[in-house]
């Protein structure tokens, strides 16, 4: 694996991966802090640990490709281009939020970026992704619909219905399972008869691949290849990225169902320091250059928090707005 980064992407792109992973982590950790201060309320599901998946996958897609996700989707929105300050304002419930404060943490949406939503009913985004892919094909648009979901979603009916449908209608859907091994507190082998999730697509004859979701380069290469396959064949493809969330399912979950040894094993595979090290070893960045990136990310997130704090609340009349056209 060593000394290969420059074969994968230009330096600028490689550094952007680090930048995006770092701001995702920084954003989530500041969210946790703002939650404990009571500025963010409701459910808050943080992405820390899984950054390589959002960053690698987004880089492997075209800007016109749709992205849909579940309720742990702050990083996917930000990496796609959503302004961190507008995402933070959304979490604060402010009028300047991405969705005017009406969606919250679980319902980010940015159609101008083709980020088509965070959905909080497990598996709800599967058929919607299929429908977007159908519309794209119908309209002759060159788009893939990339559908992110967790390991817990694969036992919903919509998973099977949508895999079947996407293959039956030959639609450009890229299914990306972020297998972090736990659906809240239930480990994958306790909910799935076949815990090796990527093998589940054989019933629908959809090609699939398993990739190390802690390695941004591995995810990038796999998704780039898969997205091109989808474009080339017009058929769905499936990626399982194994990863780990460093925090509980949500802020309400202390995560006691996982052992210290397991946590330590995954912490040692933290995608950020490992990737930083590769960048340095391969001479793509100096430590000082990475420090600069980190400092800029921190400033951006600081500004996002300030922006959210200072933003106005929604007007009361907003209750009745945006329901019907």
């Amino acid at each position: 694996m060593e000394a290969q980064l420059r074969k994968v992407a230009p330096d600028q792109e490689l550094l952007k991966f680090y930048d995006q992973m770092f701001i995702s982590r920084e954003f989530e950790e500041r969210c946790a802090e703002q939650y404990t201060k009571g500025h963010i309320t409701g459910f808050l599901h943080l992405y820390s640990g899984q950054e390589a998946v959002a960053v690698g996958a987004t880089a492997g897609l075209h800007r016109d490709d749709y992205i849909l996700s579940a309720y742990r989707e702050h990083a996917q929105a930000i990496v796609r281009g959503a302004e961190p300050r507008r995402v933070m304002a959304e979490l604060f419930g402010k009028a300047t939020g991405l969705c005017k404060g009406k969606g919250g943490s679980m319902h980010l949406f940015a159609p101008d970026l083709n980020f088509m939503g965070g959905y909080a009913i497990v598996g709800g985004q599967f058929p919607i992704s299929v429908g977007l892919a159908f519309a794209a094909r119908y309209r002759g648009e060159d788009r893939v619909a990339a559908c992110f979901f967790g390991d817990g979603a694969v036992n919903q009916g919509t998973f099977h219905e949508s895999l079947n449908w996407a293959q039956l209608w030959q639609l450009p859907v890229l299914f990306i399972c972020e297998n972090n091994f736990y659906g809240i507190g239930t480990e994958v082998h306790r909910s799935s008869a076949l815990a090796s999730i990527h093998k589940r697509t054989c019933g629908y004859d959809i090609p699939s691949e398993k990739v190390d979701g802690m390695d941004v380069i591995a995810v990038y290469r796999a998704v780039k290849y898969a997205a091109e396959k989808v474009r080339e064949t017009g058929r769905p493809y499936f990626i399982e990225a194994t990863t780990f969330r460093f925090r509980g399912h949500s802020m309400a979950d202390p995560g006691k169902y996982r052992s210290a040894a397991e946590n330590d094993m995954w912490k040692a595979r933290d995608p950020l320091p490992n990737y930083a090290n590769r960048l340095i070893v391969e001479g793509i960045a100096t430590r000082a250059a990475l420090d600069d990136i980190e400092a800029r990310c921190r400033t951006t997130v600081d500004e996002a928090v300030t922006f959210a704090e200072e933003s106005p609340w929604p007007e009361d009349r907003e209750i009745w707005e945006d329901i019907y056209v």
């Binding site: 749709y66 088509m116 709800g124 599967f126 058929p127 919607i128 992704s129 299929v130 429908g131 977007l132 892919a133 159908f134 519309a135 794209a136 119908y138 309209r139 619909a145 009916g157 919509t158 219905e161 949508s162 449908w165």
Partner: peptide, 15 residues
């Protein structure tokens, strides 16, 4: 459920 979900996605995608 997927008939409706696909319709939702298709509507969001311009159909």
């Amino acid at each position: 459920n997927t008939i409706i979900g696909v319709s939702v996605g298709a509507a969001m995608g311009g159909l």
